[in-house]
Design a protein around this nucleic acid. Structure first.
Length: 716
DNA sequence: AGCACGCCGACT
DNA sequence: GTCGGCGTGCTC
């Protein structure tokens, strides 16, 4: 009897395709295996999600599986079920989620290489080709190239069309080659995590906090926790929990927002766990990722530390999942796959019957609320910080820096001490403006007003970060462009240089000019005491490895409150609270906050270091305006090249949901806050309902009809 | 996602 | 008339 396999492919097609399994492959095919299958003209790697004995009712002829790539299933039933649920909840095709779960080198697919034919060579020599054809012919004359490579080199509107035409004329030939990866080494010695004698001591109060979590871990059922407290205490608890988990030969998944911020923790883990530690993050090479992946799958890792995608690590016997710094934005949104790591981690923990621990000193309002309500908040207490704060009520008019702050910096400099300042606006000024016609230069790809960088004479797009030379003559009326008075970080730095001549002031900002080496040089110089004052944007907050200084200043954090985002209060709080990490311990240390909104609770409580007080205010505001966690908000983001089509689709989506009834409020469609990103137009529809489930159901019904790229961000 | 097909305006 | 742009639909 013939056997059939339901195969999910790593494409935005959210249903399995059925292939017949040749008799000789039958024994080796299992649910969870990778298979090489034909799809149209190409071959690619899919995942077997089901086996069946009967043919599905289909008019098409089924194609056979070309090859089974695994001897034992690549994905466990738990991982299959987990990824399917993540796919459902994030409205992303299952295959795309599965793709994220596998090292790229283990997903084979045919690659096309374009080669010049004899006829093409002759035509090139005779010069009978059109300019475009010639360009392609020249490029592939030395050796074959992929269409992707040609796309970058040849500036034609429709390259695939051009290639097809050239193919028809026999000028070029497209060859398909299967990119092979060396077959995996046979039966690696069943690695065992070393018998670990972890010695993590814990003081009495933390022991109590850890006790509740340990109790649930012992039960072997799912339980969530929110570990609320400073990083040092959280880590002490993590170590303690890990020791227990490992002692019971369980394994631990520890997610962090960014691997660079975690070096100290990784070193500690390495010391204690040695080979039993595996690391996964996107900056690793394919080969490194593959090696770590195999080690994890073979049971050689007791603990996996990694970023977002590490959540899909094929770790067996997961007993504990930690999501540290749970408030971090990299968890909720990202260019790649739009899924919420906290929610996905919960799903995996449920699936594996593991304990989930979210950790933060300043959690999201939603997490704190639900933890308190659900009785799974574990409070580790807080470090007293407020007493050393300096609040400067300041309106930037002529200058950008309050004289009192200048004085404080001077006092430190005289003692040979350094200062770190945060100011979250890049560039020299917010931009250029023509005083005559009011024209503001905009990025021609993203349509956002560009930030002016005085030093380099460049205009930079705040979204795509593309820099173009600044034209100081108005393109509209020919008038002379003026610098808009509202200032960016470069202006702050210049004012500091004027105030402290002879001192070294440096700017640390993300993007354009600051390449990796430059950043590292900057941080190194700072460590060597060669920089007196370091001014950074939000990008610096995410940087690690700076030794704390006695004076840290945050300038105008209230700018964040202007954001059209219901979380702006929380973001402002985090901007101030995050700066504390750079403050040296000690009585003479100061956190200075210069703000024109000193009375706003986000800023006031952040200065006092009182998250609970902030939360009490913020939750009132959320309740009053019916924002999450009191309602569920969803942002549906559609993107594509054609704004008209996008708008039409967004409108039809909005209409369909409106028609479904009044339980969901529909706002929009409207242009997304970043309306253009790298040639992609972005339109969004915002939904609000009492319960998340209502929105999820409505979207599950309506979203499959939308052809554009879509991403859903759910807040509840 | 790729890729083929089929429809329209505009140039050899 | 063909070329070349673009929207539509399909892939087991």
């Amino acid at each position: 009897m013939t056997l059939y396999a339901d195969v999910v492919l790593p494409l935005p097609i959210d249903r399995p395709y059925t292939y017949l399994i040749p008799a000789e492959l039958e024994a080796g095919t299992a649910v969870g295996s990778r298979v090489l299958v034909p799809l149209g003209e190409r071959q690619l790697t899919g995942f077997v999600v089901g086996l069946r004995k009967s043919k599905p009712r289909l008019s098409v002829n089924l194609k056979p599986v070309a090859e089974v790539l695994d001897e034992r299933p690549f994905l466990t039933p738990e991982l299959l079920s987990f990824t399917r649920k993540v796919s459902r909840s994030s409205f992303t095709a299952w295959g795309e989620i599965l793709q994220a779960a596998a090292p790229p080198s283990l997903l084979l697919r045919t690659r096309v290489a374009v080669r010049l034919t004899i006829k093409g060579e002759e035509a090139l020599a005779r010069g009978t080709l059109s300019d475009e054809e010639k360009h392609v012919a020249v490029l592939v004359s030395s050796r074959p190239h992929s269409p992707l490579f040609l796309e970058k080199k040849v500036r034609v509107k429709n390259l695939p069309g051009l290639l097809a035409r050239m193919g028809k004329k026999d000028l070029i030939k497209a060859e398909k080659k299967l990119k092979r990866v060396s077959r995996r080494a046979q039966a690696a010695p069943p690695a065992r995590p070393a018998q670990l004698e972890l010695d993590f001591s814990l003081d009495e109060s933390l022991r109590g906090a850890a006790g509740a979590i340990l109790e649930r871990m012992a039960k072997g059922t799912f339980a969530p926790f929110l570990l609320f407290g400073p990083a040092v205490r959280r880590e002490a608890v993590y170590f303690h929990l890990i020791r227990r988990a490992v002692a019971q030969s369980g394994r631990v998944l520890h997610l962090v927002p960014e691997i660079a911020l975690t070096q100290a923790l990784i070193q500690t883990y390495k010391k204690r766990l040695g080979d039993g530690l595996a690391i996964l993050h996107s900056a690793m090479t394919e080969r490194q990722r593959e090696l770590e992946w195999h080690k994890i799958k073979d049971g050689g890792a007791a603990v996996v530390v990694g970023t977002r995608s590490a959540l899909f690590a094929p770790l067996p016997d997961v007993r504990l999942i930690i999501v540290d710094e749970e408030q971090d934005e990299t968890y909720s949104q990202q260019e790649g796959l739009p899924f919420d790591v906290r929610k996905a981690a919960r799903i995996r923990a449920e699936e594996e019957r593991a304990v989930l621990v979210l950790g933060s000193a300043a959690p999201t309002v939603e997490s704190f609320h639900s933890a308190r309500k659900g009785g799974f908040l574990v409070d580790l207490g807080r470090e007293p910080v407020g007493k050393n704060a300096l609040l400067l009520d300041f309106q930037p008019t002529s200058g950008l820096i309050d004289p009192r702050l200048t004085k404080a910096i001077r006092a430190r400099l005289e003692k040979g001490e350094r200062t770190i300042l945060f100011y979250n606006r890049r560039g020299y000024a917010s931009g250029l403006v023509c005083p005559r016609c009011g024209r503001v230069p905009r990025c021609d790809r993203c349509d956002l007003s560009q930030v002016y960088h005085n030093k380099e004479g460049k205009l930079v797009c705040p979204s795509c970060r593309r820099a173009v030379p600044a034209v100081l003559t108005c393109t509209g009326c020919g008038g002379r462009m003026a610098v808009k008075p509202s200032a960016g970080i470069e202006a702050v730095a210049e004012e500091l240089k004027r105030s402290f001549p002879g001192r070294r002031v440096e700017v640390f900002a993300a993007g354009e000019a600051s390449r990796k080496e430059k950043k590292e040089a900057l941080l190194r110089d700072f460590e060597r005491n060669e920089i007196d004052i370091l001014v950074g944007t939000h990008a610096l907050i995410r940087q690690s490895g700076l030794s704390p200084v006695p004076l840290v200043a945050v300038l105008q954090p209230e700018m964040i409150l202007q954001l059209a985002d219901f979380r702006s209060g929380q973001k402002a709080f985090q901007a101030v609270a995050g700066a504390l990490r750079f403050l040296r311990e000690g009585d003479d240390s100061r956190l200075a906050v210069q703000t024109s909104a000193p009375g706003h609770y986000s800023i006031r409580e952040a200065i006092r270091g009182d998250y609970r007080a902030f939360f009490d205010q913020e939750i009132k505001f959320r309740r009053l305006l019916d924002y999450p966690p009191f309602s569920c908000l969803a942002e549906v983001l559609l993107s594509g090249g054609n704004l008209r089509r996008l708008a039409a689709e967004a409108r039809s989506l909005a209409d369909k949901i409106r028609q479904a009834g009044k339980t969901i409020q529909v706002y929009g469609p409207a242009l997304a806050p970043v309306a253009r990103m790298k040639e992609l137009r972005r339109v969004q529809v915002t939904l609000r309902a009492r319960r998340a489930e209502t929105i999820v159901k409505a979207l599950a019904r309506t979203l499959p009809g939308i052809k554009s790229r879509k991403a859903v961000f759910l807040f509840d």
